[in-house]
Nucleic acid binder design. Structure first.
Lengths: 138, 138
DNA sequence: GTATATGCAAAGCATTTGCATTAAA
DNA sequence: TTTAATGCAAATGCTTTGCATATAC
């Protein structure tokens, strides 16, 4: 069983077949899936799982802080199970593919105090835009 | 007349009252508006302007590279007319307010070559998340 | 005069919600 | 046994589109 599902069960998360499958589909991915892709992958294991349950479960995982929800330009949101290690993203602006990259040069990236405009800053998201190998053509 | 509208007319953009008003509403904002907010502001000047025309015009400006479209978490997209000067954004995760901040510490923010996964990287978007003064409470 | 933009209303996609049924604890 | 999750289908929010009319050039 996935380590994630087990950990959440111990926190009192009611562990159903659907939730287990969603957690397993997400786990360990470094290319991040849409809700629809999660649904398709989950259905391969549990054919009766519904889209509503996929969305419900993804939102719970996001609210529990176990998964990151990423709105990348157009198209549907993508879900990133890698919350433990700080990282950045690489987005294909054509097909929407989203994957992780390890941080480099992020140190020192802050909002100058005189520009916070009264905001209480909590974090920063960094997204590199470009074309994936498939979309770049050559 | 707005400098933006004038510039685009010279590039062959057919200049209608609606387009002029949308360009004027956007110009010079450093707090970025949603399509709906643009519609409301535009209607104050030109009551008959439709939502469809606002969307059409915003998309044209985005395609012409004159405006940036920003999908920030939930809620509608926001439109940023400041394409000339590189900058970062400050997002209120509660109410969606989005505003500019000047870069600091961005130098050296690149994807390590061994992690490009074949991507052709074009640019990077940096978004600080937090709470705006109104949403932070105090 | 001709090509293009507009407004309207309907369609589209991603996501959420209400409710009766089913299953976990 | 009790409380919460599921599946369905309908509703929602944002955005786009088709088409007849109006307007810039």
């Amino acid at each position: 069983m996935s380590e994630l599902a087990e950990r959440l069960r111990q926190r009192g998360w009611r562990l159903t077949a659907q939730r287990r499958v969603v957690a397993e589909v997400l786990a360990g991915e470094h290319v991040h899936l849409t809700a629809e892709a999660v649904h398709v992958a989950a259905q391969a294991v549990l054919p009766e799982i519904s889209m509503a349950t996929v969305y419900n479960t993804l939102n719970e995982l996001v609210n529990m802080g176990e998964v990151l929800e990423i709105s990348a330009g157009n198209g549907p949101k993508r879900y990133d199970p890698n919350t433990a290690i700080a990282h950045q993203h690489l987005l294909c602006t054509r097909c929407g593919t989203l994957r992780d990259v390890a941080p480099k040069g992020e140190a020192g990236l802050t909002v100058p105090p005189d520009q916070q405009h009264g905001f209480q800053v909590v974090g920063v998201d960094i997204m590199f835009r470009g074309l994936c190998p498939a979309c770049a053509g050559t």
